[in-house]
């Protein structure tokens, strides 16, 4: 775990960061170090998290700048140039209908980031909401919601996603919905346990004593205080969502051709592996790097935000 790697680094560094202490004494007029600033500082010291950020930044730019980086279209076929090996003209070679793989991977980065973003946002919103309700109100509402979480988590996640896509029909949008659904209970459980521990805190009781409404207590006091684990899970979930979408795409249950989705690209090129291995190597490495990037950031964030979770 990169947690251990941080420990290693931690041994080299003094336990209390002198920079933080300095800023404490120097700037006494402004808001000083907030937990977020501390987190940023901690992350900057974590080489693994930095590497992760760079990888993700690279792919985000890669996707954004795709039209500038390449003059090919991601769906333009060129049968005369099919299965060409990597060259100065086609950096990553061409696929079985002569499409430039570099171009398709660049546009694929857009697809992947969108998938990650929407699946995680969906799961985060619904999971947080349900977890809040379950944890805050307790009793039978909690029992029902927690049981539903248990049941959904009783299925191996990708299997449930496959079943949902089998119901809704194979498309990128439905794959996205399926991935969001399987992630709801993961967020829900985290939020619920956090809310339960916060519910009895004195500052919540004080807010209630002041006559504050439930909704306001939840959104102004409980939610901000449960943000840390949600953020960590969202980062890790981003990577998993992209991986799951690629898996569904590979099975033909996600993005449909000619969408340049990395998993679907692997499926389309499967038969040419001996003839043109580059058609599989580059999309695969792209998926791996993006997932690795999010894992590195997620691990780093976890160590930074919650020192108790460190081993």
């Amino acid at each position: 775990m990169s947690a251990e790697k941080n420990n290693k680094q931690g041994q080299k560094l003094p336990l209390t960061n002198p920079a933080t202490l300095d800023s404490h004494s120097d700037e006494d007029d402004i808001e000083e170090t907030s937990p977020w600033k501390d987190t940023c500082k901690y992350l900057q010291k974590n080489r693994f998290a930095i590497t992760g950020c760079l990888i993700i930044l690279f792919f985000v730019l890669f996707g954004f700048l795709a039209p500038l980086l390449t003059s090919y279209s991601y769906q333009g076929q060129d049968l005369a140039n099919r299965l060409q090996p990597p060259s100065s003209e086609h950096w990553f070679g061409t696929d079985d209908v002569g499409r430039d793989i570099f171009t398709r991977i660049a546009y694929g980065a857009r697809v992947s980031m969108q998938v990650g973003f929407f699946a995680v946002t969906g799961a985060l919103v619904f999971g947080t909401l349900l977890g809040m309700i379950a944890g805050y109100f307790g009793r039978w509402i909690d029992t029902i919601i927690s049981r539903i979480f248990d049941i959904v988590l009783a299925f191996p996640s990708i299997l449930l996603a496959i079943a949902i896509v089998a119901i809704l029909g194979a498309s990128l949008q439905n794959a996205l919905i399926a991935i969001a659904i399987i992630n709801i209970p993961i967020f829900g459980r985290i939020v619920r346990s956090k809310v339960i521990s916060l519910r009895e805190e004195e500052f919540i009781m004080a807010a209630r004593a002041q006559g504050m409404k439930n909704g306001r207590i939840i959104f102004h006091h409980i939610l901000p205080n449960s943000a840390a684990p949600i953020i960590v899970q969202a980062t890790l979930g981003f990577g998993t969502a992209i991986l799951d979408a690629a898996a569904l795409g590979f099975l033909g249950l996600g993005a449909q051709p000619p969408t340049p989705e990395w998993g679907a690209m692997l499926a389309a090129s499967r038969d040419f592996i001996q003839l043109a291995p580059w058609t599989l190597i580059f999309p695969g490495i792209s998926i791996m790097l993006v997932v690795l990037g999010f894992n590195l950031i997620g691990d780093g964030l976890r160590d930074a935000l919650d020192p108790k979770m460190k081993n």
């Binding site: 990577g239 590979f250 599989l280 695969g284 791996m288 997932v291």
Partner: peptide
């Protein structure tokens, strides 16, 4: 941890 199973299998 980050390797897609299906890609590893293909490779």
């Amino acid at each position: 941890v980050s390797i897609p199973v299906f890609w590893l299998a293909l490779m």
